[in-house]
Simulated scan of single mutants.
Amino acid sequence: MEIGGAPFGQLHAVLSGQFKLQRAAPDGGMQVLGFAMPGDLLGLDAIGTGRYANDAVALSECVICTIPYASLEQLMAHQPALARRLSQLLSASLAQRQDQMLFLGNARAPQRLARLLLDLGGRYSERGGSATDFQLCMSREDLAAYLALTVESVSRLLSMFKQNGLLAVSNRAITLLDTAGLRAIAAPPAATSSLPVLHSA
């Protein structure tokens, strides 16, 4: 799989399982940049630089399809539709990364977690699963590293969401009980001047 700094030569299509994408942070820790699910293509960010930027770490048993990029280039030379599709994937990946950075840089902690849970539910739904009842493959440490929060903050927010009837949580099993309430909390910072009041015990 991908190792940050290694020479680029292949793309990896996730067929089953989940990965976290991470890289070393300036403080010596690891920054989690995202989570890959079946249907996602890993390694797109290395096409331009010639080196993988991130480590891809399996969060569960995974099956991938390795695609040599040299072979893909040959196919794209004869299939313009394939080249256009790859360009679309690159553009979408860049836009998603920019949106993530902007949101995390401006959102409060409850907004960050609410949006992540809704996004995960949407991605599970796109793959034939439930948008409101799913298992988290990632640990709370991974969630904290992705959201730029402490593990304690993530645990406290999950408990607060549970107390307010927004979700049910048991270990890594999540049930979203009030998606409308979560969407209200996850609203972009510029779209609202105040957040719904959350009560903690």
Results as ranks from 00 to 15, higher is better:
residue 21 L to S: 02
residue 192 T to E: 13
residue 19 F to E: 02
residue 77 A to M: 12
residue 96 Q to S: 14
residue 97 R to D: 12
residue 2 E to T: 02
residue 50 G to R: 08
residue 159 S to Q: 13
residue 182 L to I: 04
residue 13 A to Y: 02
residue 88 Q to C: 12
residue 143 L to M: 14
residue 56 A to N: 04
residue 178 D to T: 06
residue 30 M to S: 13
residue 113 L to F: 06
residue 183 R to C: 01
residue 17 G to M: 08
residue 49 T to W: 01
residue 36 A to C: 10
residue 178 D to S: 03
residue 36 A to D: 04
residue 161 F to S: 03
residue 182 L to S: 05
residue 38 P to N: 09
residue 146 Y to G: 01
residue 94 L to C: 07
residue 164 N to L: 02
residue 49 T to R: 13
residue 105 G to M: 09
residue 188 P to H: 10
residue 128 G to D: 09
residue 130 S to G: 05
residue 129 G to L: 06
residue 184 A to R: 15
residue 101 M to R: 15
residue 73 E to Y: 00
residue 153 S to I: 01
residue 174 I to W: 03
residue 48 G to M: 09
residue 123 R to I: 07
residue 61 E to Q: 13
residue 164 N to G: 04
residue 114 A to W: 07
residue 102 L to W: 14
residue 9 G to K: 03
residue 116 L to T: 02
residue 86 L to D: 03
residue 143 L to I: 01
residue 177 L to G: 00
residue 167 L to I: 04
residue 147 L to V: 03
residue 18 Q to S: 15
residue 57 V to Q: 10
residue 58 A to L: 06
residue 53 A to M: 10
residue 170 S to V: 00
residue 125 S to D: 11
residue 60 S to L: 07
residue 156 R to T: 08
residue 117 L to D: 05
residue 176 L to N: 04
residue 112 R to K: 15
residue 129 G to M: 07
residue 173 A to D: 10
residue 57 V to A: 05
residue 5 G to Y: 03
residue 94 L to A: 12
residue 105 G to W: 11
residue 83 A to Y: 06
residue 71 S to I: 05
residue 195 L to D: 08
residue 182 L to K: 04
residue 88 Q to I: 08
residue 19 F to S: 04
residue 34 G to W: 09
residue 33 L to P: 00
residue 114 A to K: 09
residue 76 M to A: 11
residue 14 V to S: 02
residue 5 G to E: 08
residue 169 V to P: 00
residue 135 Q to R: 13
residue 47 I to L: 14
residue 70 A to T: 12
residue 168 A to E: 11
residue 116 L to K: 05
residue 123 R to T: 11
residue 6 A to N: 11
residue 166 L to E: 06
residue 50 G to L: 04
residue 25 A to G: 09
residue 68 P to S: 06
residue 135 Q to P: 03
residue 63 V to I: 10
residue 69 Y to F: 15
residue 159 S to A: 15
residue 30 M to K: 13
residue 6 A to P: 00
residue 28 G to R: 06
residue 36 A to G: 07
residue 183 R to H: 11
residue 133 D to H: 14
residue 89 L to S: 11
residue 151 V to F: 01
